[in-house]
């Protein structure tokens, strides 16, 4: 005991000269510094990894004379991309389960919510500091990774096997990733506030992440209105549709009537021709989402997610002011 420094010996240690953070922000950062270091560390390493992957790919493509010469190269096959893909996929889960859910629930379970709110700060001030911390962390991670990944993907998108409308690209580029991370964090916090217990809150947040991924898959495709393009049967689709995402495919007759793609899929060629003749089918029709629609769809998605975040935040603030922690 005598060798351990006591307050008498090291009064200076209690008053560091340089204080970047004060008051509640200091407390929240001090309390969550492990989570902060881990999540920020993951985000920074992930960003650097993406930058390195892009650099490596550009080197390779330059050597082969892309884009003047065609290069048979698919990003999706590389191991580097699969790491990026898993990291970006896991981040919403990490923020919901390990940052959002324990944020308030942990303090309620250990009683430290009571400790802080019986100092000279109100519940609302404390909650604001907590939410500010979590959202700032989500936003910084989202912006950093999204910027890096968009920078990689956008100019080289023809080399990515995954289509722009699919989750791994759509959710992880542009404004969608920061908004998605904010929403998942808010969802985790709300679950924690409602359940009050750490482990159940984390478990439910995990379940919520899985369910919301399915629901979001359904929503994503409906964010843009599909267009139709009709072209003569048995001809090739024009090249400008290379980047379009085909939602559905039809066959049509001269009157503009549409039939399902498999309408005349008969066993024999004879029967098939008879069917085509009977319906007067002369055209192929595709229902598609154009790449030009991506920006609008992404901003719509971000808007929806941010509105959800605002709604959940409002609910949490209202609930905590109505009934104490």
């Amino acid at each position: 005991m005598s060798t351990t420094p006591t307050l008498t010996e090291t009064p200076a240690a209690l008053r560091p000269r340089r204080r970047l953070l004060r008051g509640l922000p200091w407390l929240v950062v001090r309390q969550h510094r492990t989570a902060l270091a881990c999540v920020l560390g993951i985000a920074v390493l992930g960003t650097l990894w993406i930058v390195y992957q892009r650099y490596e790919m550009v080197q390779l493509l330059d050597a082969r004379g892309w884009p003047e010469k065609e290069v048979r190269y698919a990003v999706d096959d590389s191991r580097g991309y699969s790491y990026v893909h898993s990291l970006l996929n896991a981040l919403p889960l990490v923020l919901a389960v390990f940052v959002g859910a324990p944020l308030i629930a942990g303090d309620r379970e250990s009683g430290t919510a009571q400790l802080v709110t019986t100092q000279s700060v109100t519940r609302r001030q404390w909650l604001t500091a907590k939410l500010g911390f979590a959202y700032a962390l989500a936003l910084v991670c989202g912006l950093m990774l999204s910027a890096a990944f968009t920078w990689w993907w956008q100019p080289h998108r023809s080399l990515f096997f995954t289509k722009w409308v699919e989750g791994p690209i759509f959710d992880n580029t542009g404004p969608v990733l920061p908004a998605l991370l904010l929403f998942m964090t808010a969802a985790g916090i709300t679950i924690g506030v409602l359940l009050r217990r750490l482990v159940p809150a984390m478990a439910v947040a995990l379940g919520f992440t899985a369910v919301s991924a399915y629901v979001w898959d359904e929503i994503r495709i409906r964010l843009g209105s599909t267009q139709m393009f009709t072209y003569p049967k048995d001809s090739d689709l024009p090249a400008r549709f290379d980047e379009a995402y085909e939602v559905d495919r039809w066959v049509g007759n001269a009157q503009g009537e549409l039939f399902g793609w498999g309408t005349c899929a008969e066993a024999t060629e004879k029967a098939q021709n008879a069917c085509i003749k009977e319906h007067g089918i002369i055209n192929d029709v595709i229902e598609y989402l154009d790449y030009d629609q991506m920006a609008a769809m992404q901003w719509t998605a971000a808007g929806l997610l941010l509105a959800g975040t605002a709604l959940l935040t409002g609910f949490v603030l209202w609930r905590v002011s109505r009934r104490p922690l």
């Binding site: 307050l7 209690l14 004060r22 200091w26 001090r30 430290t112 400790l115 700060v121």
Partner: peptide, 17 residues
């Protein structure tokens, strides 16, 4: 109390809040 805080951290929390 915050279990992972040191005694000095805990008193600093008092000072900050």
């Amino acid at each position: 109390l915050f279990k992972r805080f040191t005694v000095a951290d805990t008193l600093r929390m008092g000072a900050e809040l």
